[in-house]
Design a protein around this nucleic acid. Structure first.
Lengths: 195, 195, 195, 195
DNA sequence: GATGAATGAGGGTTCATTCAT
DNA sequence: TATGAATGAACCCTCATTCAT
């Protein structure tokens, strides 16, 4: 029996699961907990999701699409490049990474155990390749326009992704604005601007 | 009953545990697995470690000291500051972060679930504060010497730590040299140099 | 709420249930499976049958009547006894036991766990008593007519029933005709004929 | 970790399991029940057996060897054939089939669901072939010695096995001696003797 | 009548921990 | 010190049954 792919309860369960997986990891999170915090009964979780692994898998992969939209479709920067547009893009990236706390924690949990979650890693790798290649295009465009200093686009891609991931990983407790500013300014530097 | 704090078997078990915790996380790693891969019997693990939690706690906290040595006692940069010394320091940091794969995975596993591992988080936060304040001193010194451009030392600290953590988290498969170079050069930029 | 005792869907469900119970036993057979293989929805099964136990009970007891007809009303052998009529009866019995595979599997499943299915066992015992007493009458009649050799009718009854049940239980894969012949000839011997 | 293949507790658990599987079938029998009736804790069952399926498998296959001994090594009947020896063999077979109630119930449970337990069926089929070919040899020998009437050995084999299985299946409540006698005498008839 | 989402009791199984040897 | 059998809490999952639509 195919599982329903939508529905109010499914959404509730999904979000709860995402939060709990983010908080406690895969093994520590129990279906019982997910059910309780979703205000549904134990069995209902299995009405919407095949099993725990499938639920986790979906928590990891379903949001990728939305992620892609937010991170890659940034205000036509490739068509009309400018420092301001770049900064705007970076600001959005930083904000988005800091905002999507739960999802990124889950992602990092998976990335931290690539052998264990190899199936999901493949899908995440695809996205990370996509993201890096987008960043590389931005850098190339910026250089062609003579707006960005000489850089190795690949290196900027590596560094920028690492930086965003690390930012999300490392800072939990710090208040928002100050940290956000700090991270934005540091991110500019990775692109060779704002010094 | 106090547990032995040294011994060949203890070391073997400890290292195996660190590796397995890094690979599979806390819950998925079983004492049985640790014992088997350490070539000791099941019960022997409990001869050296109170219980699983204690073993994990030690895996997280024991190596901090060595970490401190490597990362903070870097060739008297504070006394004789120079761009070369700074680059040298950064190179060492990058190399060390990439080298200590297992340990850093474990750290990131803990950081990613701060409520769950709040006790260890405290100790890790102490070290991270220490590291950031060291970096801030480096930046301040560099600025005073007129060698580094105008920067907010705190921001550089944030960004640099995030970057190092993210680098370790994000890249597993890539070959060493090229990635190392890329990361080094991007790290320079965070300090406002290297372009 | 009284359940409908007839209807096309009821028949479909009933037959599917009988087949699945025969194939996999009571516990392994699920209502979901029965519904799916009957091409009805899940809940529909409960429209026609109180619950799983009731359905199983009916699978065991409903066909008894037809069984009785086929096995006990055999061509007036008690009125006009002859060796040929006896052989004819035996042939019919053997054929019927081999034909009613599903039902007899279910019967044997129940008989094999008499404590577990004590309620059904009572009904089955009634029929088995009836059958044995019929066979005893046949033997007595045959002896009175001087056509059957001296036998203990009860013993023949025991043996004959055991033989028929065992035949059905033991041989699944063997092709029909040869086995049927073999079993017929062996059954004759139990009555002291055909040697 | 390989499971212990002997030990007092293992024997206790094994026998309890055999009894409960015989009484209630595979699915209805719970590990909890087996543990309780064996006076061991729940987990101990898993110390000796991989899982429920494995335990069941062993219940079905381990006793085959002893079965073979008892049923096939019958007093050199093939070397020194005589009616008395044959009757002796039959008596032993009947007695053994009636005695090994639990084991044969389990066997019949498996045979009754051959698709479900196909793996075990293979092993059981091997034994049943062996048994039938032994019986065929007995019949051939008896015919050669001129002691048994003209028979189709294969047919006798079929019939005899069916009869023994059916006897075990069909009669549970009846007292021993009378039934035993009846079955023995009927079994003689299958070999064409004893009238 | 027909449906299938919701429920939760009960099953198999894992595994940290204890402890007698 | 070293071992591994014994334990049982807690997990995931199945499935009969109910009931609103």
């Amino acid at each position: 029996m195919a599982k329903p792919r939508s529905g109010e309860k499914r959404t509730k369960i999904f979000r709860t699961a995402l939060r709990l997986f983010a908080q406690n990891g895969y093994s520590k999170t129990t279906i019982k907990d997910i059910a309780a915090e979703s205000n549904v009964s134990f069995g209902t979780v299995f009405t919407y999701f095949e099993n725990k692994e499938e639920l986790f898998h979906l928590c990891v992969t379903e949001p990728i699409e939305e992620f892609r939209h937010h991170l890659l479709e940034t205000s036509g920067i490739l068509e009309y490049f400018s420092i301001d547009k770049l900064k705007e893009m970076i600001n959005e990236h930083v904000a988005y990474f800091l905002e999507k706390e739960d999802y990124l924690r889950v992602i990092q949990y998976v990335i931290g155990q690539p052998e264990r979650f190899s199936k999901m890693m493949e899908e995440l790798d695809l996205f990370s390749d996509e993201f890096m290649s987008f960043v590389q295009n931005v850098v190339k465009t910026g250089m062609e326009k003579g707006v960005l200093p000489e850089s190795n686009p690949e290196e900027v891609g590596y560094g920028y992704l690492a930086f965003l991931m690390g930012a999300r990983l490392t800072f939990t407790d710090y208040p928002g604005v100050q940290l956000t500013n700090a991270l934005e300014k540091q991110a500019y530097r990775l692109f060779g601007i704002g010094i």
